[in-house]
Amino acid sequence: MAGIADKPIGKDATGYEILTDAMKALLNQYPGLYENETIKFEELGKESGIAFSADNGALIYSEKEDVCGVMHQVCQYPFYVVYRTASDKERQKLSVQKFLDNLGKWICREPVIINGSETRLNAFPELSQGRVIKRITRDNSYGLEPQESGVQDWLLPLTVRYENTYEVI
Rank of each mutant, 00 (worst) to 15 (best):
I50N: 13
V82M: 11
Q76M: 06
Q92T: 01
S95V: 00
F52S: 08
K93W: 04
A54G: 13
K98E: 08
R84E: 00
E65N: 13
K89W: 01
E47K: 09
V82P: 02
E42H: 09
E35I: 15
Y83V: 11
A58R: 03
K93V: 02
V70W: 11
G49D: 12
L44G: 04
E42F: 11
H72S: 10
K93T: 00
T38M: 15
E63L: 14
I60E: 14
D101W: 03
Y80A: 04
H72Y: 12
R84V: 08
K89A: 09
A54D: 15
F52M: 12
S87D: 06
E63F: 12
V70Q: 15
H72M: 08
D88R: 12
Y77N: 04
K40G: 09
P78A: 06
A58C: 07
Y80G: 05
R84Q: 04
N36P: 02
L100D: 07
Y61F: 14
E47C: 01
S48Q: 13
S95M: 06
E42D: 13
A86I: 05
Y61C: 03
D101Q: 07
G49K: 08
E42P: 00
E47N: 12
E65H: 03
A86D: 14
E43I: 07
E43S: 13
D55M: 05
E47R: 09
Q76E: 07
E63H: 14
V96S: 07
E35Y: 12
L59V: 12
I39P: 02
V74Y: 01
L100Q: 04
R84W: 08
S62G: 01
Y80V: 01
E65F: 03
A54Y: 05
Y77E: 03
A54F: 04
E47W: 02
A54I: 04
D101R: 12
N36A: 15
I39Q: 12
H72W: 08
V70A: 15
I39R: 13
H72T: 03
D66K: 11
L100S: 07
S95A: 09
F52V: 07
C68P: 03
G49Q: 06
A54Q: 13
V70C: 15
F99R: 06
F41V: 08
I39D: 08
V96F: 06
E90I: 01
Y80Q: 09
E35Q: 14
K40Q: 15
F52Q: 07
G69R: 12
E37F: 08
N56C: 09
Q92P: 00
D55L: 05
E42R: 04
E42Q: 10
K46F: 14
T38K: 15
P78T: 01
T85V: 08
N56T: 10
Y61I: 03
Y83G: 03
F79E: 01
K40I: 11
E90F: 00
L94W: 02
